[in-house]
Computed example of a mutant assay.
Amino acid sequence: MDQHTQMKGKDFLTLFDYTTEELTYLLELAKEIKAKHKAGQSYQPLKGKVLGMIFEKSSTRTRVSFEAGIYQLGGIGLFLSTNDLQLGRGEPISDTAKILSGYLDGIMIRTYAQKDVEELAEHASIPVINGLTDDFHPCQVLADLQTIEEVKGKLAGLKLAYIGDGNNMAHSLMVGATKMGMDFSTAAPQDYLPQDAIVQKAQALAQETGTTITVTTDPIAAIKDADVIYTDVWASMGQESEQAAREQLFASYQINEELLSHAKEDYLFMHCLPAHRGEEVTADVIDGEHSVVVQEAENRLHAQKALMVVLLSD
């Protein structure tokens, strides 16, 4: 059975659920879809398909990339704010999942709790795509891997350092890098390191793939000899009240020229955006020659189109 047939109808909840071969297939397809798009070729394998897009957390990139992506593939995207759904008025997730399964061909959801996405997937008879939760952001990492491969020509054997809050990005990058044969390191203040349970699960994976995972409070140790440097905002959506406290705690974790002197000379700088210049990264770095943040953001479109083609096409 080929990879496409194997993945058709699957959910995309975390990268733990996908094999290295499946992720490689998705990245290859994303490359082909991007080439078609750049050449102006029409490619519409999802004619007549409808993707429901549930947003409890608002977003620029997730909304526009999924909506534009499904249209370009010949389908239709329906933006569903939780303010407009009975879900927002207390309807059980299981009921919403069963009802929407009768109307749609797939659901993308961007919300807070990972357990809500898992419950939705459990009760839906159509594919559910995790557009972001507090624990994971797998769609972003597909685009990140596509970008690294475009620029570096490979993934296996590279070192990716994630500096900053041990959030959904830290978790998904750790899993994605490990699956693709990359070493991964991360640094944050002690109370802001990635969740132990996720680190342990990823460490077991690293033993299988022959890669290393380093979790430390020392940003210099984490960034040493890294090929790819990644960061995110210090206070994510819903954590605005912690902004001032986090700014003090994370001051020594800022991505700036001084810290980057410990990375490889030809490092790539990445950020899932939106970015706060002067906080987690200096303007000269994010706007400098090593930064691939615009290319990375664009690849959300192509990587997610590949995902939708594989999960939703006949």
Rank of each mutant, 00 (worst) to 15 (best):
S65D: 03
M108T: 04
A235L: 05
G131A: 06
A283I: 06
V309L: 02
T217G: 04
F66D: 14
D218F: 13
R63I: 13
H262Q: 12
R300W: 15
V117A: 04
L193G: 04
L273Q: 11
L13M: 06
L273V: 14
L193E: 06
E67R: 04
N167F: 06
A297V: 15
H276R: 15
G77Y: 11
I213G: 05
Q243A: 11
V293W: 14
Q295E: 15
L160D: 07
L160T: 13
T211M: 12
S241I: 02
V128L: 04
P219T: 10
L120P: 10
P127H: 04
R89N: 10
G69Q: 06
A245H: 12
A245P: 02
Y25A: 01
T214M: 06
L27Q: 01
Y162T: 05
S236P: 10
E149K: 11
E289M: 02
T217Q: 07
T111L: 09
I286M: 14
F136H: 14
M169S: 02
A275I: 01
I255N: 05
T178G: 05
I213P: 08
S236R: 07
F55E: 00
R63S: 04
G74D: 14
H302Y: 15
E257Y: 00
L27C: 03
T147W: 10
E150A: 14
L311F: 03
H171D: 06
Q195K: 01
H171L: 04
A206M: 11
T19Y: 00
G181L: 01
A177P: 03
M7E: 02
V309A: 02
N299Y: 14
